[in-house]
């Protein structure tokens, strides 16, 4: 077993700390919470310190923050039904655009890899795709009503403009723009979880997707294209199949999952206050991969763990946040303490 070494505990938000997002540089991250604030954290003399507090952007809790791939923009999704876009053009971070349209709580926001598209989702069961249309201008490209229930999370494919969403209706859906008529369509529905799917993460190639659920399992899905060597027959361009289910590890709802694109490690945030790390085994079969639990950090937080995020530099640094309002910074080290 490896050891998740705590390097810093930060009392960050009053009430719930909901979400964290790494800046692409890996030397700054943003946090948000029930207290309607966004905080930006950078390293100062070996420890993380608040560099800025963004207030007055939202009237209710902020559920998620997301840095744009270029690192110049920060998007925040709030229960006040809006999504705010913050930038630093004036020298300080300011909210210069607000995306309105969701009927009620916005639960998640994500930038496409090109930074030209933004996706949001929420309690009104819809997924929205917005296009960056110029300075502080965002146009709604599509409103997708494929889910039957609250949509919890949206995540973009790491290399192409394919969007994935996870919902209270127990499914994950994938969307793509039809080239000939510029219409966004749902191209796949991933069904296997037995309860709410809370979060999802692609692997670095985008060929695999990890999902986590209230059913206490993590599932790994693999994309099969036409004429695949496995001989899987399909009518569509591609099908996604569940190739691995990690069950028996988590004792409560799993709220978040992070797949490190550098190290391949998977971290989960769970309602049992535990952070777990999984690694793919060396002899893993691509069509039936195997993952082993390499670290279990009991009492990682004093309450539900809401979010885990790997430093994009691949230095095995992990950040997490919790209902207890704290952020914790961890380092994954080989071997036991």
């Amino acid at each position: 077993m490896d050891n998740l070494k705590l390097t810093q505990t930060i009392p960050a938000h009053k009430g719930i700390a909901w979400n964290l997002s790494w800046h692409p540089s890996g030397n700054t991250f943003a946090s948000c919470g029930e207290d309607k604030t966004i905080k930006l954290w950078s390293k100062e003399g070996g420890s993380w310190a608040a560099k800025a507090v963004l207030m007055d952007g939202h009237q209710r809790a902020i559920r998620q923050v997301a840095w744009s791939p270029c690192g110049n923009l920060l998007a925040s999704a709030s229960f006040d039904a809006t999504t705010a876009i913050w930038d630093k053009k004036s020298g300080q971070f300011e909210c210069n655009a607000t995306l309105e349209g969701h009927e009620n709580e916005v639960k998640s926001v994500a930038w496409s890899p090109s930074g030209m598209l933004l996706a949001t989702c929420g309690r009104d069961k819809s997924v929205w795709i917005w296009e960056v249309a110029g300075d502080d201008e965002y146009e709604c490209e599509a409103v997708l009503n494929a889910h039957h229930q609250d949509v919890k999370k949206v995540v973009w494919h790491p290399l192409s403009e394919i969007l994935a969403s996870a919902s209270y209706d127990n499914t994950v859906k994938l969307y793509k723009e039809e080239i000939h008529d510029n219409e966004w369509n749902c191209i796949a529905t991933l069904q296997s979880h037995e309860s709410t799917v809370w979060s999802l993460a692609f692997d670095p190639t985008g060929e695999r997707l990890a999902t986590c659920s209230d059913d206490k399992t993590v599932k790994i899905w693999k994309q099969y294209r036409p004429h695949n060597p496995e001989g899987l027959v399909m009518e569509k361009d591609a099908v996604w199949k569940c190739v691995c289910t990690l069950s028996g590890y988590h004792t409560r709802c799993i709220y978040d999952i992070a797949w490190c694109h550098k190290t391949g490690l998977i971290a989960t945030a769970c309602g049992d206050d535990v952070i777990r790390i999984f690694a793919e085994t060396e002899d893993s079969d691509p069509n039936a991969p195997t993952f082993e639990l390499v670290c279990t950090k009991f009492n990682a937080h004093s309450q539900d763990v809401n979010c885990v995020a790997w430093n994009p530099l691949g230095n095995r640094e992990l950040i997490s946040c919790s209902d207890d309002g704290e952020i914790k910074v961890w380092n994954l080290q080989d071997g036991e303490d």
Partner: peptide, 8 residues
Amino acid sequence: DDFITPSQ
């Protein structure tokens, strides 16, 4: 898929 849909 661009109709207005009923609320939850």
